[in-house]
Design a protein around this nucleic acid. Sequence first.
DNA 1: TGATTTTTGTTCATCGTTGTACTTTATTGT
DNA 2: ACAATAAAGTACAACGATGAACAAAAATCA
Lengths: 159, 159
Amino acid sequence: MNKNQAFPWDHPRFRSWIGVARACQLMQQAVTRAIADLGIKPPHLDILVNLYRFDGISQQELARKLLVGRSNMSMLLPQLEKRDLILRKADAKDKRVLRLSLTKAGRSLTEQAMVIQTGLIDRILSQTPEDRCLQVAESMEDIIRILQTMDADEVAEDA
Amino acid sequence: MNKNQAFPWDHPRFRSWIGVARACQLMQQAVTRAIADLGIKPPHLDILVNLYRFDGISQQELARKLLVGRSNMSMLLPQLEKRDLILRKADAKDKRVLRLSLTKAGRSLTEQAMVIQTGLIDRILSQTPEDRCLQVAESMEDIIRILQTMDADEVAEDA
DNA sequence: TGATTTTTGTTCATCGTTGTACTTTATTGT
DNA sequence: ACAATAAAGTACAACGATGAACAAAAATCA
């Protein structure tokens, strides 16, 4: 009777998750404002950071990492290409895939953006001791694993 | 030199926050699928749960709680009203505000949805001990507080 | 009281995301 | 080798969120 509260908001795990969701929403808004001066928005930043880290990735792989659809990449990447921030080169072995990479300008912009983003994260987590951060990271890894296996289950059910 | 890593993804707080963001994104998708059978989506659920908890709230207050714009409420609430899930009654004292409340059907639907949502959260946090959840909740409260004061600062700067 | 400013809610144009259908290229199976 | 299937990327229509401009009502203040 202790864990089955009358209302969700009296439920510790529920309250905890609501807090996570709110923090994310606010953080998203803060990031949006923080990088607005660079002329990019969070979706662009996510792309750029991933290209910075994984040079030569394909659109498909990028979409999977970002948890969005392929069509989303097909909309956003040409924009960044036209701004000369990224390059899309057809793969020699497989003519279907486009290999993505940052231009010099793109790399430079990404570095500026990452400084801003990291600064923001540092500021926001300043009240949270580092070991607490690591614990949070661990918990999130668990959650992500469970959610991903849930997705796999549902796909399996469909078959 | 220990805390100033070369790359953001070697930075503990950065990795930690990326995990939080990914977990949120996946959770959002899971909730969307879980409540689809009820004919509602996360934004509707957020509204319904808040009306369940705060009967008679105004559209403005609701928008503030949900961290969205007023116009968003002006778009969504009429939909729910047409489906007879909520009621909008003009306030007697202040003719500008509309007092929101759930209908019987709305309350019933909300209860079903909350069961689903709470079940999902329980499942997802099943690997996370309850004291760990409370720690996460604490950290999130800190973060939310900081982000909100940052917003206030920026507004102040504009003045 | 009367003028100005705030507040509440709405409307609308704009932008971003999604899912579906489609084309082109690889892979698989026979 | 050839047909069928799968995968990568694109185009487009539909939906949702946002912010600015607006109308009505209330609060402020002179």
